[in-house]
Design a binder for these strands. Sequence first.
DNA 1: TATGAATGAGACTTCATTCAT
DNA 2: TATGAATGAAGTCTCATTCAT
Lengths: 210, 210, 210, 210
Amino acid sequence: MEKTVIKKREVKTSVKDERLIQKRRDQMIRGAVALFKTKGFHGTTTREIARAAGFSIGTLYEYIRTKEDILFLVCDSIYENVSGRLGKDLGQQKGTLLSLKLGIAYYFTIVNEMQTEFLVLYQETKSLSRDAQHYIFEKETEMVGMFESVLRKCVDNGELHLSEREVELMAHNIFVLGQMWGFRRWAMQKQYTLEEYIELQTKLLFSGIK
Amino acid sequence: MEKTVIKKREVKTSVKDERLIQKRRDQMIRGAVALFKTKGFHGTTTREIARAAGFSIGTLYEYIRTKEDILFLVCDSIYENVSGRLGKDLGQQKGTLLSLKLGIAYYFTIVNEMQTEFLVLYQETKSLSRDAQHYIFEKETEMVGMFESVLRKCVDNGELHLSEREVELMAHNIFVLGQMWGFRRWAMQKQYTLEEYIELQTKLLFSGIK
Amino acid sequence: MEKTVIKKREVKTSVKDERLIQKRRDQMIRGAVALFKTKGFHGTTTREIARAAGFSIGTLYEYIRTKEDILFLVCDSIYENVSGRLGKDLGQQKGTLLSLKLGIAYYFTIVNEMQTEFLVLYQETKSLSRDAQHYIFEKETEMVGMFESVLRKCVDNGELHLSEREVELMAHNIFVLGQMWGFRRWAMQKQYTLEEYIELQTKLLFSGIK
Amino acid sequence: MEKTVIKKREVKTSVKDERLIQKRRDQMIRGAVALFKTKGFHGTTTREIARAAGFSIGTLYEYIRTKEDILFLVCDSIYENVSGRLGKDLGQQKGTLLSLKLGIAYYFTIVNEMQTEFLVLYQETKSLSRDAQHYIFEKETEMVGMFESVLRKCVDNGELHLSEREVELMAHNIFVLGQMWGFRRWAMQKQYTLEEYIELQTKLLFSGIK
DNA sequence: TATGAATGAGACTTCATTCAT
DNA sequence: TATGAATGAAGTCTCATTCAT
């Protein structure tokens, strides 16, 4: 798989000091995520975000241009975090069934940890501009691509027998079935522990319903 | 399959004529769905909804109490529609693998038809009150339950060998993998036709990745 | 005392039958007073008044032209009632101190009975049109006039020694000190029974603070 | 006279600078009183108040939470003003009949100056919340209390012979008869000059109608 | 005469964004 | 750089009044 180069969408600032920008944005994102989790993007005001971030509304606007920028920063940071961790793990994949299973388990664990972040991501993405949405979709494609390449290695090693299209679809399925743990938590987490969920899903993924 | 009785959450009206209420609400829902699809719930104003429905803002408020009521009415009507159609089809299931496959295919077709409606449903549900959300969740549980009982029939007939927990999880998986067609249309519908998608997913669902 | 002729301000109707008009207006007034007492004129909607009156909003508007008409009708009916009763009592005054005292006591009793009505009257009068306010003021002047003529009789009989201007002022004082029982009920009725109040006020009115 | 401590009901602000708050509120109150005088509380819009105060509607809402807050601020400021002035005058009372008369005259003068403010006060108080009304009543009680203590001093000095209950009632009477000058101005101010009114009322108050 | 559905002007309030300090 | 007061467009909802039935 070719690594598509995604150029970081820029969020304009009036501040020059890069170190400061990073620091302020971190505060901002941390505050915003916490608020978005409970009140959603539209239910949260910029004033609240500024307060949660620990500075004034004036300062907030020194580091962003519009409220949407904050949402973008939040979404981006979540993906950055997840795809970073996942990439590191799946990257050193050797292409055996066992390591595939371990990769899946690891991904599910991340989803579990970051449930609410993912919720924010999926429920608010549509509030982004077309451009920003596109950028986010690309990041997601990148993550699905990680599973694709793991699966492909297994196929190459003769451990799996899947067509190219099946590889692609299965990568999506793994991705989505992971998210399901968080999205349908009202049903899933009442019925299963995370370990049970991983075990059962892995089984169904590998052998189907026969 | 036990039919859980869900008592319809009432939306208050100042109009008395039941026939008229139905008619006006239909207009309202139709208009609202169209707007929510492109602009989302928060991006749509009550005035726009009234105009799209073909009457004045005053009249709109004769049939609802708050803007949220509209969202509820919309969500409810989508579920009512889908679960009605699905229930009719799956209800007459005989419990063979073939008819299970046909049921899945039918469900995927419905999802395809109502993609944008489902998008609205999943992206805006969180804007509902706790009560209304609960009602919607129950309706969804009801739909998942339909798949569960079909699967269970197959197990009873000896056509499938799944534990009770696997039945439950698989029902969710079918449900979610169906939604996936609509939610990830930017990826799915670029790669597969609906028929291919149905065929591939059915295969993976039944035999896994081996 | 010259009896000023006050020509009854007309409230336009589309209904012809005088008997019916009277009946509907009575219902209307009764309902409106009850509502105004607790919610005030501005806090009460025409719909509520119609409902309280026992008919539809459409019917309500067959008997009045604007919401203000209702207020006028209410105010007018209260004065009509009070000044009717008071006129009958004070009219047969013989001009002795005793009967003056009895007249005051009688008036205070009426105020007590109709406290909330008076409250409505004084708090909402300002919402009437200039014309209607003028009419109401005239009715009030008429009532104060009743006390004036009683006082005057006493002066004529040599039972009181007051100048004309003192007569006029005293009439107002009696009138206002009566209203005080209802207007300042939070203070008065916590401290005195109606009988005590009448007795004390009469004493102060007659002998002053020495 | 015991001085009851009334804790100032707070009106929430998003502005921090206390000096500025005071300044803006003064502008606001001044504008609002002028409008309430002619159009009443319900007849005045928040936009009009903002304009009259000299700033935008957005700014208005930086200094209050709801429209009712404005009414409260207005009522409070009127009482504060009056009771301040009255307290200063009556406070230095020596307990002679002469100084009592002077006190009454001074009070009547204040009422005359602030007629329309008092009108606003009495006609709109009922639009306040229960809490705010209670606060306003307490302030009024405080003012009546000032007269009570002056009267009491006179009784203690042997200048007046009144029972405790008579003292209390007379204090209310003075208070109300003062208000009467403003409330019934359509009758009073047509008949008497302020000086005449003071003189006549004082006479009646002191010697009664004999 | 009686009804009640329809209307829309207009009220209150919020909040993203700016800009002088 | 940081602050926070000021702004006003825009949103939701109410309610007096009308008019076809």
